[in-house]
Amino acid sequence: MISARGLRKEFGDFTAVDGIDLDVPAGQAFGFLGPIGAGKSSSMRMIAAVSPVSGGELRVLGMDPATHGPQIRARLGVCPQDDTLDVELNVRDNLLVYGRYFGLPRGEVRDRADELLEFVQLTDKAKARVDDLSGGMKRRLTIARSLINRPDLLLLDEPTTGLDPQARHVLWDRLFRLKAQGVTLVLTTHYMDEAEQLCDRLVVMDKGRIVADGSPLDLIRTHSTREVTELRFGVSVDGGHAALADQVADLADRVEVLPDRLLLYSAQGEETLAKVHERGLQPAAVLVRRSTLEDVFLHLPGRSLVD
């Protein structure tokens, strides 16, 4: 569906995307992760055939965006980072006019709009002004709009940013269903749990480059240990958590210092914890858990993500 070699995007002197390679096969759910300004949206916009490529090669649905922009866009669904709904039109009309841009007959667009409103649970809001919708509803409407042309490839730039947990779960459920229907999904996100749940494959970007690549499980296996021991000490500790890190450095494969706790990475979390206690340290709270994508991030350059 997408293939890129040495793909670059420059804005004047500034390089936003610095030579990335991508291959997204049909039916995959592919995720871009990375800190703010990593170049995720810039990459997405090139794939969406709205932003000219500055260097390298890009094929989307087998076509070159430079020469076949309208043909590519005809088969894409795009949910941009910022909503671009027409806030003065009502909910249903937003879908109707958008469907017409794809050259679909009016009758078909009407049927499709009603189906999609049902799909994103906005049927009872069909006549509401977009202005009066909540953030989550707007996002759902944007997703409905991106599906109006039955796209082969759906591009979602931070689909759930700014939503409450409830609204995020509704959206995830809809995306799961689309995935089950074989739609190829490409999404960007700041949320590790979202990436872990939705994506078959992830790339982590930082400063315009891909710094890690693989399935969520692969990434955890490659960049983290099996388990993590979290230690939280009282605020009165001299020198804070950083000073304590030296005392336990040899007990784990890696120790990560966060402002409020220490993370000890090892294969056996309970064993590590026992050794900590042997040293006579008395953490105020402990937690032994499996590694998640979040731990991968603490290790990778994209650290600002979790701050």
Binding site: P80, T84, R145
Partner: peptide
């Protein structure tokens, strides 16, 4: 409102 931004994401 960025209506144009929405429009150029289509074949327009």
């Amino acid at each position: 409102q960025k209506v144009y931004v929405g429009q150029i994401a289509t074949p327009l």
